[in-house]
């Protein structure tokens, strides 16, 4: 691109960039404040002035306290197992279901899809009690199964994938049939690889929701070694930290860091996925 052109467009974009930057700063301010507090000594946290840059670093003190007193690694590992387990099963079940609803003709398809839509309207808290009783009677409380199983079938995922698959050309599927693929091969070899944008978007929704979920783990988990990240912070606040906000923020930062990093990576793929979807000839 020619240099003058680039400069001119940058000048023209400046007001827009400034406005977006300001909005982003407002949105990120609490998180930045959290990072800042996690590095401040106790005395400075309660100082009257608002300084984003700590005058004295208390990194070792705050983070050391967290790492020493609570098993952050275990929480994060639990979070990964639960979120990954949920996501894998959700995709495993939702993608074939969505394919059938989007591209196959069978009697009753619209009624089945109606039920899926109906399922979207039911908040999962309403099913918590019967599920709890079910897990309690089968002795599955305090297991990974209890944390994962209720979420493996996501109606939202079915809905999202179904809408996306409908836009894929029918002839792509016909070509696959002529090339010798069965319906399952079509789903995993043709449909899913071409649905990366939808899959990434859904993965972000799913992982964020379950990483931060506090409600369900609180219902089914008592044992400390099954604590998910959100529960870990809760436990740390009540038991260990008390008024020690520096250490609490350090714990929060450690627990949210994997999510932030994962999101930054996924976002890249997400944009790539959208631009690469050159399906039409």
């Amino acid at each position: 691109m020619a240099e003058p052109n680039a400069t001119r467009s940058l000048t023209a974009d400046l007001p827009r960039l400034a406005l977006l930057g300001l909005a982003a700063f407002i949105a990120l301010a609490p998180y930045l404040w959290m990072i800042s507090v996690s590095m401040k000594p106790q005395s400075e946290v309660f100082a009257a002035s608002l300084d984003l840059i700590p005058s004295e670093l208390a990194l070792i003190e705050n983070y050391g306290k967290v790492l020493e007193r609570v098993p952050v690694g275990t929480y994060i590992l639990n979070g990964l197992i639960v979120c990954f387990g949920i996501l894998v099963f959700q995709i495993l079940f939702a993608v074939p279901a969505a394919y059938a609803l989007a591209k196959l003709n069978f009697p009753g398809r619209d009624i089945v899809f109606g039920f899926v839509m109906l399922g979207l309207l039911v908040p999962y808290q309403t099913t918590a009690l019967p599920l709890y009783i079910g897990f309690a009677t089968t002795g599955l409380l305090d297991t990974y199964t209890a944390l994962i199983a209720p979420f493996v079938c996501s109606v939202f995922a079915i809905f999202l994938f179904r809408q996306f698959f409908r836009a894929l050309p029918d002839d792509l599927i016909n070509a696959a049939r002529i090339d010798g693929m069965g319906e399952f091969s079509i789903v995993w070899r043709v449909i899913l690889p071409n649905a990366w944008p939808a899959a990434t978007a859904f993965a972000i929704f799913s992982v964020v929701a379950h990483w931060n979920d506090l409600f369900w783990p609180l219902v089914v988990v008592q044992k400390g070694d099954l604590y998910t990240p959100a529960m870990g912070i809760l436990a740390f606040r009540s038991v260990e930290a008390g008024e020690d906000y520096g250490a609490l923020m350090a714990a929060a930062l450690l627990v949210t860091a994997p999510l932030v990093i994962a999101f930054l990576f996924a976002q890249r793929r997400f944009i790539e996925g959208i631009t690469m979807t050159g399906l039409k000839g």
Partner: peptide, 9 residues
């Protein structure tokens, strides 16, 4: 096929 229906991925 008319629109070729190549596998985009």
């Amino acid at each position: 096929f008319q629109n070729y229906a190549l596998y985009p991925h």
